[in-house]
């Protein structure tokens, strides 16, 4: 159970600046697809570092294990990216000072792998927006000790 405070994603990221132009109608990103806030903390029960992504509505998730290190939390109904579980024991990060870039790359790799598996979701902007939200708040998210407290 994560108790870390939510970190709001900037409105500039939430609102699309360039609306897609149709002939008569403008299509914006649907608000329910855009991450509103993110948070991350080491979950002592799971023994994993969990990043959660919050949307306008709450939803149950199911886990999609991508590899030994990353497990994605995917919305049961909407198939949105709701969270990421990182097995820090398997994550190849420096023991004293982890590499933010490396973690982000690992997440991107897992999401790409998931989208290759579930091609129906490939066109959706949700995944790109979720990664963007994590990247924009990466330092704030991961400075809450990504490694298990005992390590």
């Amino acid at each position: 159970m994560t108790t870390a405070p939510w970190i709001q994603v900037e409105p500039s990221l939430r609102m699309r600046s360039e609306p897609r132009q149709g002939l008569q109608l403008t299509l914006f990103v649907p608000p329910h697809e855009v991450p509103q806030a993110v948070r991350g903390e080491f979950d002592k029960q799971l023994k994993k570092f969990v990043i959660e992504i919050r949307y306008l509505d709450d939803e149950d998730f199911k886990r999609e294990t991508m590899d030994d290190t990353v497990c994605l939390r995917i919305g049961k109904n909407s198939r949105r990216l709701l969270g990421i579980e990182l097995d820090t024991a398997n994550l190849n990060v420096a023991q004293v000072q982890f590499q933010l870039k490396e973690v982000e790359e690992e997440i991107k790799r897992a999401v790409t792998k998931f989208l290759q598996k579930d091609q129906a979701q490939e066109e959706r902007e949700n995944y790109a927006l979720a990664i963007k939200a994590i990247e924009s708040k990466g330092e704030q998210l991961l400075n809450r000790s990504i490694l298990a407290p005992a390590l």
């Binding site: 608000p31 329910h32 306008l56 509505d57 709450d58 939803e59 149950d60 109904n77």
Partner: peptide, 30 residues
């Protein structure tokens, strides 16, 4: 959308020729 499932829609309709503050309405909705 409620709990990840489509629930319904909100429709703003106006007699004005344009809805000037569409982005404002969307931001308020968020």
């Amino acid at each position: 959308v409620v709990q990840g499932q489509p629930w319904g829609v909100i429709v703003v309709d106006s007699r004005a020729t344009k809805i000037q503050c569409a982005k404002g309405i969307l931001a308020s909705y968020e």
